[in-house]
Amino acid sequence: PKDEAKKKVKEAIKRGDEETAKRIAKKYNLDWDDAKREADEER
């Protein structure tokens, strides 16, 4: 599900692992900028 994928993307971003985050986002066709902004807001 997309929500689960987005959570994984945000967790990867918070760990500083943007490569993984981008790969997950691409795989699930998520909006990378959107997920990154959300992760930054939660930090």
Rank of each mutant, 00 (worst) to 15 (best):
I24Q: 01
E42F: 05
D34W: 07
D31H: 03
K8W: 12
V9A: 03
W32C: 06
R37P: 04
V9D: 00
R23H: 08
K36H: 07
R15H: 08
K6I: 13
T20H: 08
R37A: 12
A39T: 07
E38L: 08
D3K: 09
K6A: 08
K22T: 02
A5T: 03
A25G: 01
R23K: 13
D34C: 12
D34F: 06
K22Q: 07
R37Y: 07
K7I: 12
Y28K: 15
A25N: 01
D33H: 05
R43L: 14
K27D: 15
K7T: 11
E19M: 08
I24A: 00
K8R: 14
L30W: 05
P1T: 14
K14E: 11
A12G: 01
I13T: 01
E41F: 10
K22M: 10
K6T: 06
A25W: 00
K36D: 03
K8V: 08
D34M: 11
K6L: 15
E38T: 06
E42P: 07
E18G: 03
R23A: 14
E18P: 06
E41W: 10
K22N: 03
R23M: 09
K22P: 00
A21P: 00
A39V: 13
A21Y: 00
K7E: 11
K27V: 06
I24H: 01
D40F: 12
R37W: 08
D33F: 06
L30T: 03
E4M: 12
E11Y: 00
N29W: 05
A35V: 15
A35L: 15
E11S: 05
R15T: 05
I13E: 01
N29T: 03
E19H: 06
Y28P: 15
D17N: 04
V9H: 01
N29G: 14
K27C: 15
T20V: 09
D31L: 02
K2A: 13
K8S: 08
Y28A: 15
E4D: 12
W32T: 01
E38C: 12
E4K: 08
K7M: 11
D31F: 02
K26A: 12
P1D: 14
E42T: 08
E38A: 09
K22D: 01
V9N: 00
E42C: 12
A39F: 11
E19K: 09
A5M: 10
A5D: 02
A35I: 15
R15K: 09
K36Q: 09
E4G: 07
R37S: 09
D3M: 11
A35W: 03
R37I: 06
G16R: 03
K6Y: 12
A5Y: 11
D3A: 13
A39L: 10
A25E: 03
A12S: 04
D33L: 09
A12W: 04
A35M: 15
R43S: 13
K10E: 05
E42N: 07
A5W: 14
R23S: 10
E41A: 13
K6E: 05
E19P: 04
R23G: 05
A12M: 11
R37D: 07
L30D: 05
E19S: 07
K22A: 05
P1Q: 14
K6V: 11
K2R: 13
K22E: 04
E4N: 09
D40T: 11
E11Q: 07
A39S: 08
K10W: 08
K8Y: 07
A35H: 03
G16M: 03
E18Y: 15
K8H: 10
K36L: 14
D40H: 10
I13A: 01
K22F: 02
W32L: 08
A5N: 04
E11T: 03
L30E: 05
K7G: 05
I24T: 02
L30K: 02
D17Y: 04
P1C: 15
E41Y: 11
K14G: 07
W32M: 05
T20G: 10
A12Y: 10
W32Q: 01
N29E: 12
A25F: 00
R43Y: 13
E42A: 07
A5C: 06
D3H: 10
A5V: 08
E42V: 07
D40W: 11
D17G: 00
D33K: 05
N29Q: 09
D31Y: 02
K27Y: 11
A21E: 00
N29K: 06
R43M: 15
K10F: 12
A21W: 00
K10A: 09
K26G: 05
R15E: 06
K26M: 08
I24G: 00
Y28L: 06
I13V: 03
E19W: 05
K7F: 07
K10Q: 12
K14Y: 11
P1M: 14
L30V: 15
L30F: 05
K26F: 04
E4C: 13
V9G: 00
G16H: 04
Y28G: 15
K27W: 07
A25M: 02
L30C: 15
K8N: 06
A25R: 00
E19F: 05
W32H: 00
Y28D: 15
A12T: 02
V9S: 01
A12R: 01
Y28H: 15
K22Y: 02
K26R: 10
N29L: 05
A35K: 02
E42M: 07
D17M: 04
G16E: 02
E18A: 05
D34S: 11
W32R: 00
K6H: 08
E4L: 12
G16N: 04
K2Y: 13
A12L: 15
E42Q: 08
A21T: 00
D34Q: 13
T20F: 09
A39P: 03
R37L: 07
K27I: 12
E11M: 05
E38K: 04
E4S: 09
W32N: 01
R15F: 06
E41I: 11
A12I: 03
I24K: 00
R23C: 14
D40S: 10
K36I: 13
K27E: 15
A39E: 06
E19L: 08
D31K: 01
D34N: 10
I13K: 01
K22C: 13
V9E: 00
A5L: 08
A12F: 08
I13Y: 06
K6D: 02
N29P: 15
K7H: 10
